Amino acid sequence: MKAFLFDLNGTMIDDMDFHNRAWHGILTEDLGKEISMEETKLQMYGKNSELLERVFGKGHFTQERMDELSREKERRYQSAFKPHLKLIDGLRNLLEKAHQQGIKMAIGSAAIPFNIDFVLDNLNLRHYFPVTVSADDVVYSKPDPETFVKAAQLLNVKPEDCIVFEDNPKGVEAALKGGMKAIVITTMHEEHEFEGLPNILKFIEDFNDPYILELI
C-alpha cells in the first residue's frame, strides 16, 4: 500500500460515546426531541447539519442555527473528552513506522476543522498528516466517497493503493464506493453491522493487532 487514510473519531481516538452524549444532550435537553441514546448513535454520521436534518427534517433550522448548534455540541464534547484524549492503543507506533517507511497518510473525516485541530494539536500529530479532509472540504459526506477520494488525490495516490481505517459502516461504504479496501476498528459498531461490505480486510480491536504490522 502507498497510503493510509484515517477516519478520526472512533478510529484514531475512542471518543464516540462522548459525541453520542453531547448530541443526545443537545437534541433532548436543548431542542426537546424525544430520542434515545441508541437512536442518536445511529444518526451520528456525515456532517453535523445533516444529522440535524435527519432528526428534525430539512428546513426546520436555518443554516445559521445549525452552525450554532454544531459549535455548541463540539464545545461540550471537547470539554468532556479532553481529560481522556489519547490515541487508541498501538496507533502511534503504526503512524511512526508508516512515516519511516514513506507511506503517505491523510485524515478523511466528517468532523469540522475545530475537532480535527483539537486532536492533531493536543496529540502532536500534524507531521504525520500533510493532508486533512474535513466536513468543510466536501460537498457530499460519507457514505459518499468524496472525502476519501479527495484525500487520495491530494496525496497523489490511486484509490486502489489506499487502505482506509474506519469504525463506521457508512465510512466503509464510502471507501467501497471510492474503490478502496478498509480495516475496521470495532470501537462502537459490531462486526454484524458491516454485513454486505466486501471491501473489509480485517476487523481489529486496536492497532496492536498483528495484522497491522504486516501492512508495513
Rank of each mutant, 00 (worst) to 15 (best):
D15M: 09
L51R: 03
S70W: 05
E29D: 15
L42P: 01
L94S: 10
Q63K: 15
D7R: 01
L215G: 10
A111Q: 03
L27F: 05
P130Q: 04
G25P: 00
I13S: 07
A98H: 03
L197A: 09
M1E: 03
V164P: 01
I112H: 13
E173L: 14
V133G: 01
M44G: 02
I103M: 07
L94Y: 12
M180F: 12
T28M: 13
P210E: 05
K73S: 10
V133W: 03
C162W: 00
T40Q: 04
P143F: 13
S79C: 12
S49L: 14
Y45V: 11
P83Q: 04
E195N: 12
F207P: 01
E146T: 03
I112R: 11
M188N: 15
Q100W: 12
E74M: 11
D209E: 05
G46V: 11
K150S: 12
F207G: 01
E68R: 10
V184S: 00
P198I: 11
R76L: 03
N156V: 15
W23G: 01
T40L: 09
E38Y: 08
N93G: 15
S134V: 06
N122L: 14
T28K: 11
T147E: 07
H127Q: 12
N122S: 13
R92E: 04
L125W: 01
S134D: 02
M180W: 10
K202D: 08
E166L: 14
K202E: 13
L8N: 08
D209S: 06
R65A: 14
E29I: 12
A111R: 02
D121N: 10
L197M: 06
L27Y: 02
E50H: 13
Y77S: 05
T186D: 06
L201P: 10
I103W: 02
N199G: 10
Y211A: 09
E191H: 07
S36E: 00
D17S: 12
H192I: 08
E64M: 08
E214Q: 15
F148R: 00
P169W: 04
E166N: 02
I112V: 15
V172Y: 01
H19E: 13
E38N: 09
A174T: 02
Y211W: 13
P113D: 04
Y128S: 03
L87A: 04
L85A: 09
V149Q: 06
L154R: 07
S134M: 03
K73P: 02
E173W: 07
Q43A: 14
L85Q: 09
P145D: 13
F194C: 01
T28A: 14
N122W: 07
I183Q: 03
E38S: 11
P130M: 09
C162Y: 04
Y140C: 14
L51W: 00
V157R: 00
E214I: 09
G57I: 06
D206P: 05
E173Y: 06
L69W: 05
K104Q: 07
D206V: 04
E50Q: 15
P145W: 08
L94C: 14
Q153L: 14
L95I: 07
F129K: 02
D17T: 13
R92G: 05
R54F: 10
N208Q: 12
D7W: 03
E72A: 15
F114V: 13
S141K: 05
E173N: 10
Q100K: 15
T187G: 00
R54W: 04
D17Y: 11
I26F: 10
G108L: 06
